[in-house]
Amino acid sequence: MILAFAFLAGMTLVSALGVVLSRNVVHSALFMSGSFLGIAGFFVMLNAPALAAFQVLIYVGAVTVVILFGIMFTQRPQVRRYRTIIQRQHWPGFFVAVGIGAFLAYIVAIADWTGTGPGNGPRGVDALGNILLGVNGAPPIFGLLFEVASVLLLVAIVAAIVVSRRKTGEGVDRGVEE
């Protein structure tokens, strides 16, 4: 168990660092999908395999592709120096991030977690299904949330189309000047 945990944690965190520090945007995208896979592994370890499947399908499958599309449409992939890609506020940002991480870790570490143990997760798809629909003992609010989420997805599709519509009269976009 520990080996699996250590391996997955390392994969996830290294990929996350890769997203942030990579000079090549496409490399960042691929690191991101690596990180998603690590998370999926975690989900399996946490007794939620159906969720792991969702994670892989949606994140690694769809979100990564959408982001790659976005990269393709917007700019040149390769830059030379770090200064071009990193903001001037990187030191304050670094300390804030460290601070947040430390603070959260500290809170978690000093809390009292007795009485908790693994095994309560939804092991099968039917369990997850019950939870999502709010039936058979799960909080009934989930029914409403499920429906609202589907409406939200519809609205997002329409919004994305409307926002990125090309107005009449605009030419085909050319490449960015260096």
Binding site: Q87, Q89, A97, I100, F103
Partner: peptide
């Protein structure tokens, strides 16, 4: 926007520190 995000996160930290 990133400056503003920085300020937001700093505020979150301040509040968290004060509370916790």
């Amino acid at each position: 926007a990133q400056n503003y995000a920085l300020f937001i996160l700093v505020s979150v930290l301040v509040i968290g520190v004060i509370v916790g």
